[in-house]
């Protein structure tokens, strides 16, 4: 039930900029691009009157275990399909790609989240700072080499996922762990500054009040 006309049109317009032929499964058409072609591909998708992908439904970072990806989901009034754009091949050490905030400024926070969680650097985003984690936090929690202290996947009952086994301890630099947010030399440890506690002692304003 995929939209073959859309796949044909995409192949025609963008075929030479894609990493792989246009794919489709379920109700989603899928294209793969490299970070170099992302800006022109997204601009075409957004502006071309035959494509008109005017709503950015989602922007997600993905850690494949090797390279990182950024996955966009787009909606167009002209097609019954979702369009998935996968920006592939971002190296772990320095994952840089252009921002899409020039088309959708709503992507600003989504890119901030992807930076916060995966360390993806979106060039052109004017506000790329952490959004969930504290500002002096150093790790990227959703990367596959970030292990949780009580990693449930390593308990015998649930089986072992090779992806998330602990790295050998010989190389501690490669194992990001939770670091204290107010250690010596931390941005928040100076005198006269405000240190925010681990969680505001909230009376659960809405969580209780709304129930």
């Amino acid at each position: 039930m995929t939209d073959t006309a859309l796949a044909r049109r995409l192949q025609e317009r963008l075929g030479d900029q894609l990493l792989a032929p246009v794919g489709a499964r379920h109700d989603t058409t899928e294209i793969w691009v490299g970070p170099g072609q992302l800006t022109s591909v997204m601009t075409t998708l957004h502006d071309d009157p035959d494509l008109r992908f005017e709503l950015l439904a989602d922007l997600a970072g993905v850690d494949t275990g090797g390279v990182l990806q950024v996955v966009y989901h787009l909606w167009s009034p002209l097609s019954p399909d979702w369009l998935r754009v996968i920006c592939d091949g971002l190296p772990r050490e320095d994952p840089r790609l252009p921002s899409v905030t020039f088309l959708w400024n709503g992507a600003e926070w989504a890119e901030r989240e992807a930076w916060d969680m995966f360390g993806l650097i979106f060039e052109g985003n004017r506000d790329l700072r952490r959004i969930y984690m504290p500002p002096d936090y150093e790790s990227f929690p959703l990367r596959k080499d970030f292990l949780m202290p009580d990693d449930a996947s390593r308990s015998p009952g649930l089986g072992v996922r090779p992806m998330e086994e602990a790295l050998p301890p010989a190389d501690p630099a490669r194992v990001p762990v939770l670091r204290s947010s107010a250690g010596a030399g931390s941005l928040w440890s100076g005198t006269g500054t405000q240190v925010v506690g681990p969680g505001p002692a909230t009376p659960a304003i809405s969580a209780g009040g709304d129930a």
């Binding site: 984690m133 929690p141 449930a152 996947s153 998330e164 969680g199 909230t202």
Partner: peptide, 15 residues
């Protein structure tokens, strides 16, 4: 933001 952050995406990957 972040006062209610649980890291639910990470939690989901681990269950």
């Amino acid at each position: 933001l972040g006062y209610l952050h649980r890291g639910v995406e990470k939690i989901c990957e681990n269950g």
